[in-house]
Computed example of a mutant assay.
Amino acid sequence: MSKISPCLWFGGEAEEAANFYVSLLPDSRIEKVQRNPVDSRSGKAGTVLVVEFTLAGQRFMALNGGMRFEYTHAVSFKIDCADQAEVDRLWDALTANGGQAEGCGWLRDRFGVYWQIVPTALPKYLGGADGAGAQRAMQALLGMVKIDIEGLRRAYEGA
């Protein structure tokens, strides 16, 4: 078990968010739900205080802090995707119900958490041996919202 795990702060939707996130990726599960023992700023006695969960093998904690703080781009979670189908599935799920698409594979989910949905092929095109192709792929990427692997390939190859 890792000694470090991210803690996500929520105003009151920690359990909903954790359940949503674990539904998206293999090797994910809710580990423990801890409830408030007494009334406090984080909620009434018996309401969810902390959810410990594993997301794609990484431990996380979701905390209902009682008030909502906004997340920023300064911290985001990158998901490596094997193919376009996985990019599309995760993109659609995370932008649904109030999530917001950004650019270059970034999005903000309905809970305000930032994600990068990145195909594993991206470094092949941005760091390939063909310098001009890599420049074309980077220019293509900069014009994308959700990353399109085929579009990157075409740009890299000059097609």
Rank of each mutant, 00 (worst) to 15 (best):
I149M: 14
K44V: 12
G46F: 07
R153F: 07
I147A: 06
N19R: 15
S23M: 08
Q84I: 00
M138W: 07
S42Q: 13
A96I: 01
G65E: 05
S5D: 02
Q34M: 14
G128N: 09
G112W: 03
D80M: 00
S28V: 04
G133C: 07
M67A: 15
Q139W: 07
T54H: 05
L122H: 02
T95K: 08
N97C: 02
E52K: 13
A85G: 03
A121T: 10
E16R: 10
E52H: 14
Q58N: 04
H73C: 06
I4G: 01
A140G: 11
F77R: 00
V48A: 14
A82Q: 13
T120P: 00
V75R: 04
G143A: 15
D88H: 05
A137L: 04
R68K: 14
D92K: 13
R153Y: 13
A132Y: 01
A101E: 14
R35L: 14
S76G: 10
A129V: 09
K146N: 02
I147R: 05
R89E: 12
L90K: 11
R89W: 06
D109P: 06
C104R: 11
K146C: 05
A140L: 10
L90N: 11
R41Y: 12
I117R: 01
Q139Y: 02
A85S: 13
P123Y: 05
Q34W: 04
V22I: 15
A62E: 01
G158C: 12
A140T: 05
S23V: 04
W9L: 06
C81D: 00
W115A: 06
Y21H: 08
R59K: 15
A129S: 12
N19C: 07
G46C: 08
T120Q: 11
D109A: 10
M61R: 13
Q58R: 01
S28Y: 00
